[in-house]
Structures are given as C-alpha cells and as structure tokens.
Amino acid sequence: MHIHFLDPYRPRVSPIHQLDPRVKLSLTLVFILTAALSPIGAWPVYILLFSLALSIVLLSALGVGYVLKRASLAFPFVLAALPVIFTIPGAALVSLPVGAWRLTATAPGVERFVSVALKSWLSVQMAIVLAASTPFPDLLLAMRALRIPRLLVALFALMWRYLFVLADEALRLIRARAARSGQSDLPGMRSGGSVAWRGRVAGGMAGNLFLRAFERSDRIYMAMVSRGYDGEIRSLPLPAIGQSSWLTLAGGLAILGLILGLGLIF
C-alpha cells in the first residue's frame, strides 16, 4: 500500500520538464508577481498572461485538462472575495432582493471580483506546472540556489521524504477506524457517537501518529549519526547553470517585463 497519488510530479519529455529547476522556480515566481502587480481590470494584460500560461501548459505536455482540473481546486477561496461585488460603490449593474435587503452588484465591484479570480487562477496554473514538471529533489536544489537557509531546506527534504511514509501510516489508522465503525440497523441507535467523541478518536489517532513520528525520528537520527552526521547540514555544491538556461531566464523575464509594461500603459 503506497500513497503515490500524493506526488504531483508527472514525468514527461518536454522542454518545460528539461528546464533548469532554478530558472523554472524563478520564472514561476516572477510570473505570479507580474499577475499580482497588474492593476484591477487590466484585461489586455490578463489575456496576454493567459496566452502565455496556456502556451507553457501546451509545451509541458502535461495536458490542458489536467492542469485546469487541478487549478479548479483553488477556486473555493474565491468565495472570500464575493462580497466586493456588492460593496464597492459605483454604477449599479443588477439589483437582487434578498429578504428585506437589496443586494446591488456594481460595475467596479464585478470588475474587481473577476480580476482577483483571474489573477488567482493564472497564478495557480503556473504553480501546478512547476510542481508537475519538476521532481521535488530538483526543487530543493532550486531553493538552495535562491539562498533559502540550509536548515530549512533540510527540513523540507525530510518532511517530503517522510510525508509518504507517515501518510501510509495515517491511511492504515483510518482503515482500522473504518473497519470498526459499524452502523446499527436498530431504530434509535445513532452511529458515530457525538462530535466530541469523534474528535477524541481522531485526536487519539493523531497522537498515535505523533508518537510513531517521535520514535522514527530517533531511529533516523541514529542512522544519520552512524554515517557521520554531526549536526551541520552539508551538501554537494550546486551544478553550474548552462548558457541556454540563462538565455531562457532572460527571455522569460523580458516577456513578463513587457507584459507588465503594457499594464502600465493601458
């Protein structure tokens, strides 16, 4: 029993997969920053960013459907921005009677809401392409290149390594709980117990998981020490960045800069 589905990496042969992870991470961050910096209602900029995103998805051979489906996972949060449709003052578009109140959607309100949703949707697509086209160990290398402290990168590495091991353990615990959670056919017998009880059971399982994590970390520590670990984090030097990678980086930055420049004019 192994939790493979937790790993979002999809191996493909594509120019996006072959790109140096440091360049890929930097460009993803700059893309998201560009989306964030573009003003509300800058439709030309959004269209250009979207065509850029779509081109990258096509090049990545991950499948447009796969990326869009995953991107929709981030949508529920849009609810948080829904009220702005009605609260920003401006020309009224539609007026809806809700009970004793009237909700009036305004043009600037709708403009802001759609802009936020679009920016978010574009950003998450690029984050998905990054995760699906880059093995996590390569992302760790990119983080080191971006000067993230070594200890933090080491923690990321350890968490990622044991994510799968502990997720397997959690799944075993969940199955054991499911196997013992019967439903009674007798009338008046409610299954599942009270909320507090269910919470305590889940908590007991979490405690069990934490205890195992403690014990496992002891064994890992011994395995590290017996191979010379002394508390310092060491790693091989980063490989050099190739010329074509530098060119890709420069090209990507130029395109995004140009799009941002357009956002200033229109």
Partner: peptide, 16 residues
C-alpha cells in the same frame, strides 16, 4: 533536525 522534519510530515499526515 530529524525530529522537526518527521513531525512536519506527521502534521501533514495528521491532517488526513
């Protein structure tokens, strides 16, 4: 160091 890394994984697994 290993303790923090594994506990981070445990919190993630605990969220399941």
């Amino acid at each position: 160091v290993p303790l923090m890394g594994v506990l981070a994984a445990a919190i993630f697994a605990g969220q399941m």
